[in-house]
Design a protein around this nucleic acid. Structure first.
Lengths: 100, 100
DNA sequence: ATGCATGCTTACCTGGAGGTGGGTACCGCA
DNA sequence: TGCGGTACCCACCTCCAGGTAAGCATGCAT
């Protein structure tokens, strides 16, 4: 469920408060609209976030995290942390050529 | 890198100590040989584990975690923890029909 | 010669995540 | 009449992780 390319990143954007579709779309530079719609739909379906349609014109729809959704954030945190450590490791490991 | 279906599970099996190919293969009931070889190769390439070929006949090859590999385990832990919480949530959410 | 066990390797195939490009319905504005 | 902005939907395509099935090289036992 969290294994997709974007799910955790979408959830992460919502930590600071609810966001509209367009805002999310702009905050995730390389996602496509279709995929964002898809992700939001299945995250809402899994009850990790909630969709609120304000029924206005022009349309206004907001997404916010559920408590359950917040439980997914440690996964992102752990992944990010590992990413940092791994990057450091790469940096430290590369320059072996010019040691001698 | 850790996004594959098996990488974290392979690493997890190695926490208790080095294992041979066949042992890993038996411990991961649903993985295919090809995919296990693949995973091991790319995890070794990423320096998350080390491959030791004992040069014997019949072949004996052992895999063990590197310190860097251990840094990936929190990702699995966080994911597993979320899995538990999510399962609980499902259990708690389902029986709404028979409340009234 | 045959079979067994080990640790792979190769060739092939498939499902589905993810990307592209278009369309929809609504309203205000000019 | 057309344009812009919102939040989508649809048809189509590509790519590759992952799965299946078979082969390889070696030595020992039979």
């Amino acid at each position: 469920m969290l294994g997709g390319k974007w799910s955790l990143l979408v959830l992460n954007q919502l930590v600071g408060g609810p966001l509209r579709f367009g805002e999310l779309y702009r905050l995730l530079p390389d996602i496509s609209e279709k995929v964002l719609v898809q992700e939001l739909k299945q995250l809402a379906n899994a009850e990790l976030l909630v969709r609120t349609n304000h029924g206005e014109v022009p349309p206004r729809v907001e997404y916010h995290l559920t408590p359950l959704g917040r439980q997914a954030l440690p996964v992102l945190a752990a992944t990010a942390e590992f990413g940092r450590i791994y990057a450091e490791h790469i940096q430290a490991g590369r320059p072996q050529q010019s040691i001698g």
